[in-house]
Design a protein around this nucleic acid. Structure first.
Lengths: 197, 197
DNA sequence: GTTTCTTGACCGTCCAGCCGGTACAGTTTG
DNA sequence: CAAACTGTACCGGCTGGACGGTCAAGAAAC
């Protein structure tokens, strides 16, 4: 952290290419060109293509755990934060989301990526379980979230889901009313006040 | 073209390799070897690697539409059929499921596959919408199903979800009681199969 | 001066697609 | 009948290009 190093640029370029052109287009030359470094420069920071993947995975795990922490404090509520991100953030401004979608492109080609994604999803499910007492509800939440992510990958930008438009109703269906989760001012100044930890 | 012998074998081998070894391991030589034909033989039936992909996609669309028809008549109910397949059929005995999972491995590498998968998922969502009046419920059903598929791909065989164990409760949460959908003998507003908390 | 970082030419491997074959089952011609 | 011909199905060696990775040589930072 600290310097906008070439290393980060390379990782960004790697993500960009994965998202925009797909795995097939990701060659060391292409990543290097996108990152405005030479191939040799790239290989100085990542000793192999596999090491590049490791870098992405590390970033994914890192950013996901940060993101789950962020969700805890989200004024709109944990669930809204969770479900909203994959749909709202179609242009992928949020780094964590971008990294997730990029890694999703590696499904089936890189076992390591599969594993990391599973771990990443598990972090969210664990968080959900922490907030929602009923395990089944938490599971459903996780599945819906995963489904949204999958669709975000398949459909690209134009993902429109009724789930967004009617989130309060979704929450009600799942049996979630806790304002800590929904972010609604259910009873009293729940989270919006932000009066400190 | 009368006897679809070698051609089908090649397509089967293609699926096998995608599922077991991933995209990286799929070369024309490997597919040919697996299918017990020579590379030349393979290329006789599929003029290029891309044509092989087209064959898989055609098969996916074909089998999916057959499968949705099958779901209509499923004695266990449409929803149970939909949600159950991805989890229960871990060994992928069902051809349609096998083809779906194989195609899932191409996400992010082959835009055509992305498109086909989206179309395939849409068939299921459309079916759900047909059975379930409320669009939101249908959407949630679709998302949960997609989520299960994604996890099936990520986790491989050992997919363990509470959703399976408590399907009646899931349906109840989503507001589905129609016996045509659940497969249960229609129960009144009171009755529920499982005793919830 | 040493360490950190960057470069681009170069090399070996791998693989998609090409192509010149083989086998064999009809079909036509004499 | 058989010889000659035709079309279908399949085989496997070859090659040209792409791609991952190496390296000797600097440039920049310290």
């Amino acid at each position: 952290m600290g310097r906008p190093s070439a290393r980060e640029q390379v990782l960004d370029a790697y993500e960009d290419l994965l998202i925009e052109k797909g795995l097939a287009a990701v060659t060391l030359d292409a990543v290097a060109a996108r990152a405005d470094v030479s191939k040799g420069g790239l290989l100085y920071h990542f000793k192999s293509k596999d090491a590049l993947l490791d870098g992405l995975i590390e970033r994914l795990l890192d950013r996901t755990s940060q993101d789950t922490e962020h969700a805890r404090a989200a004024p709109e509520g944990m669930v809204r934060y969770l479900l909203g991100t994959s749909v709202t953030d179609a242009d992928m401004a949020k780094p964590a989301h971008r990294t997730s979608v990029a890694t999703l492109r590696l499904i089936g080609s890189e076992p390591k990526a599969d594993e990391a994604l599973a771990a990443s999803f598990r972090m969210w499910t664990d968080l959900a379980r922490e907030y929602v007492d009923d395990p089944l509800t938490a599971e459903l939440l996780g599945l819906i979230s995963d489904g949204l992510y999958l669709r975000a990958t398949l459909m690209g930008g134009d993902l429109r889901s009724p789930v967004l438009d009617d989130l309060p109703e979704v929450l009600r269906r799942l049996g979630i009313t806790d304002s800590r989760v929904t972010g609604d001012p259910d009873d009293g100044p729940a989270g919006a006040g932000a009066g400190g930890p």
